[in-house]
Amino acid sequence: MNGLWAIVALVAFPGGLSLLAGGLAYEWVDRKLLALFQNRVGPRWFQPLADTVKLLAKEEIIPDKANKILYIGLPIAALAGGLTAALYVPLAGLKPTYSFPGDLIVTLYLLSLLTLCIGLAGTNTLDRFSMIGATRTLTQVFSYEAPFLLALLGPAVAAGSWQISTIASYAENHWLILMQPVGFIVALIGLMGKLEMPPFDAPEAHTEISAGALTEYSGRGLAFFHLAKAVELIVGLTLVAAIYLGGVSNPLWFLVKTLALLLTLIGIQSLFTRLRIDQTVGLWWRYGTILVLLQWLVLILVKRM
């Protein structure tokens, strides 16, 4: 029975297929609302799915002199990372499928896998745009990863546990957004950096470097990267909502809270101009990291007293 449940959880619900569908649905909300905010019509509800199906059906062209194993393997690793990370977060308001002390760290690293894979995929081809895009992707990782991690560890310290489910149940009684507002903002914006959303889309700034690191990707590889991003969107939103917005104890709260977060993200996306990569790094290290560290200091002092 346990084994059967594990298979269902991995393949159908809450991981696997339903997660992919959820990711695509959230991606559609993102695209549609952004379009409406920008005075455009936006895509129809099945557009992300149609894009994925189209890409999966397309021929995959592997460029000359690219390492074939890496070229095919990296998108799979990226998607696998996102799907695995989903097993440790309270998706759809349910208890995480798997849980162990310290799974917060594992989840965060699994979420970084996507960015690392994109960076490696960019350097794997000889394309100039890919190279520059990969450089920027990896530069961006180094800038947001530390503050993002610190922002999510703040609640862990408050809850006294590095296990997501424990933090989430602690958060249900404590709205951490009120106690650690800086951490919340940094975590939310860090998520945008992770997903390379505007204004942090310098790594794929298409007016400069086409599609950035993924310029040479087409067909299945590109579809996998897109799916990985959609999955990461939903996992990231769940994580931030569970930790900062008073937990996601039931499906309704899950929907309300994650969609509210998504709405905030869309607002930020439509309001700002793209940051140059040096400005992104400056923003994170000059403000993000320092503010989070200050909050840590306050947190530790309060805990001591």
């Binding site: 920008q38 005075n39 505007p198 889309d201 007016t207 700002f272 101009t273 793209r274």
Partner: peptide
């Protein structure tokens, strides 16, 4: 110019 700077909202509004 707004589009080149990555500010698509302004791009859409000014073209409207």
């Amino acid at each position: 110019s707004a589009h080149e700077a990555g500010f698509d909202t302004l791009f859409m509004y000014s073209w409207r």
